[in-house]
Design a protein around this nucleic acid. Structure first.
Length: 290
DNA sequence: AGCCAGGACTAAT
DNA sequence: ATTAGTCATGGC
């Protein structure tokens, strides 16, 4: 089908590259002057244009609401930045990551993706998610001239996949973890929809009932898919950053201590602060911030 | 060649 | 309640 005309969205403070490539989501892929992905079963292309961004979909039916929600164009970034602690490292991270927004992701794809993420580099996670989609996902409509895209496979499809077929997608020891999650979601032991209206502590507990989902992955899903912007995933990068910046003299810092510190110090949008620290620390090659 | 990557589980103190 | 070993796989 013919590529539809793009829809213009007026928005300031939006950095698509930082947002789409910072490691919160794994499907957005640079294409031409913008990025492509499948979101909620539909193919999209987004790019910067003067004064905002432009969105194209495959069928041109004009309903871009789901993607606008995903991209969080309505978020008041300045207000969020204003709640961050006023210290040197946060100021540095904020000025280096201007326009980075937290996406609003689909719970199942987010959960499955982060199950695949443990001790993997972001490029490898992207590869796994791409392989899973090509192997198990339904093809979606794309404009002429665009290579085939597949939707991320739903839980029911993956629940009936074999261990070997998942390992063929480079999941390694994570294959049984993803299977456990897919089966729990499929048979109803875990209801991802009802988690939306459940207290964060309870939702985290439910996610952690999956074999292979610990505190960090659960917090990623709470933050990136359930809008719990106080959730604060602590991975190796964030752990190093917190240790170096806020506990420089300690020989070692326990996970419990970092959890308690992060749950109070960074305020109601701690999750946002976390993503800025993560992106900044990674961009600086692991060297100390500030 | 060895180390590390958006971890989590298990067993042993 | 902390700590080490283990689990695949790929990039550097």
């Amino acid at each position: 089908m013919k590529p539809a005309d793009g829809q213009f969205i007026a928005v300031s403070d939006y950095d698509l590259r930082a947002t789409l490539e910072c490691g919160q989501a794994f499907r957005w892929t640079q294409a031409g002057d913008g990025w492509d992905a499948v979101v909620e079963g539909r193919w999209w292309h987004v790019r910067h244009v003067p004064g905002g961004i432009e969105i194209k979909c495959a069928d041109g039916n004009g309903d871009t609401r789901s993607l606008l929600g995903h991209l969080a164009v309505d978020e008041d970034l300045a207000a969020i930045m204003g709640t961050f602690p006023d210290d040197a490292p946060m100021r540095a991270a904020v000025s280096a990551c201007k326009g980075l927004r937290l996406l609003r992701q689909e719970p199942w794809e987010c959960l499955a993706s982060f199950i695949c993420s443990s001790t993997k580099q972001i490029v490898q996670i992207r590869q796994i998610v791409r392989d899973l989609s090509c192997q198990f996902g339904d093809p979606v409509a794309v404009p002429d001239g665009v290579a085939t895209w597949h939707a991320f496979p739903d839980a029911g499809t993956l629940a009936s996949a074999s261990d070997a077929s998942l390992r063929a997608c480079k999941l390694g020891f994570r294959a049984p973890y993803l299977l456990d999650a897919a089966r729990r979601v499929t048979d109803g032991r875990l209801d991802l929809a009802t988690l939306k209206s459940v207290p964060t502590v309870e939702a985290r507990e439910a996610l952690m009932s999956i074999h292979g989902v610990g505190r960090k992955i659960a917090d990623c899903v709470l933050l990136f898919a359930y809008g719990r912007q106080d959730a604060f995933p602590i991975d190796v990068w964030v752990r190093r950053a917190l240790k170096d910046l806020y506990f420089p003299k300690a020989r070692s810092v326990t996970a419990t201590r970092l959890e308690r510190f992060s749950s109070t110090y960074f305020g109601p949008y701690a999750g946002y602060a976390q993503q800025y620290l993560f992106h900044y620390a990674r961009a600086h090659g692991g060297t100390a911030l500030q």
